[in-house]
Design a binder for these strands. Structure first.
Lengths: 153, 153
DNA sequence: CCCCGATAGTTGAACGCTCAACTAAGCGGC
DNA sequence: GCCGCTTAGTTGAGCGTTCAACTATCGGGG
């Protein structure tokens, strides 16, 4: 039997297009600012943030990948770059000989601390300054719902 | 004078993280599905969609870049690929000798028509099925506001 | 104790995007 | 009619991501 496509109705269509436009423009802008001001793409910034928040400023590669919403491969390449920049150091995991631990260096922490104010300001200016408190709450609920939904399917 | 960073409050922090997680996971998923089922990334799909909706299924490169939310350079590279795949054809613009017109080929249209149902189904399953009608409306307003805000700054 | 499937992580190639530099052509003022 | 600024579009290098293939280790069942 032929399953009919459940096409988007006009409301959904408009929402989807607006979402695509906005999220692409937002991330492009933030990425460009971060690249210009801190010399790193947003994905790398996020890796440094997650490491900085972890106990001992270190995480197993897999946990870091999970935290940063990254594939293992992507993280592996990224950490290689961050290591070359002197911002991250790799160590053998003491409890699992397969494992590697990524450690944020002092240099990495300092770089992150220097980049953070500008980036946060960008997030505020480009996103939160445009939204009412109610909309911020709506966006949080929507995002949490979608994220939850995606991991379940 | 030192300008104090306007850090994110806990609500904003949570919203921002949820948004990052959800939008990354959503786009990654749709991109992977489209690559698997139609052999093209989402950015290329969108270019074909815009062309298919234009009168004569053709657009000036600049207009296409604008419509697809792409830089000129990105579009130039993308159209080169789409042309190699036989989905798009370049023609000289009759009214501006600097100009190029991207034309969707019949092959491109057929490919798009074959890819669309699966992709729309994905958008519905991964996004709209998780949201209430009210949330869809909220997401539209938020997205339109942010997009508007970004183009003004 | 030894398989064997699962898990941890890396690697290289192919591909897409960004950035800056470039060519070519339009256009306004003198 | 020509100069200079702007606009249209392309190009190549460098970087980040993806995908599949690979090595190494873990850990449970026989």
């Amino acid at each position: 039997m032929v399953v009919m496509t459940r096409w988007l109705n006009p409301d959904e269509q408009r929402t989807w297009r607006a979402y695509l436009t906005a999220s692409r423009a937002l991330m492009d802008t933030l990425d460009r600012e971060l690249q210009r001001d801190a010399g790193m793409p947003h994905a790398y910034y996020e890796i440094l943030v997650r490491l900085s928040e972890a106990p001992g400023r270190q995480l197993r590669m897999s946990d870091l990948a999970e935290a940063a919403g990254s594939s293992r491969s992507r993280l592996s390449h990224a950490v290689a770059r961050l290591e070359a920049a002197g911002w991250v150091r790799r160590e053998d995991c003491p409890t699992d000989r397969r494992g590697q631990v990524a450690v944020l260096t002092d240099d990495g922490f300092a770089t992150l601390a220097a980049a953070a104010p500008g980036h946060v300001e960008g997030v505020r200016r480009h996103l939160f300054d445009a939204l009412s408190p109610a909309q911020i709450d709506q966006l949080r609920r929507i995002s949490e719902t979608v994220a939850e939904h995606l991991t379940r399917s």
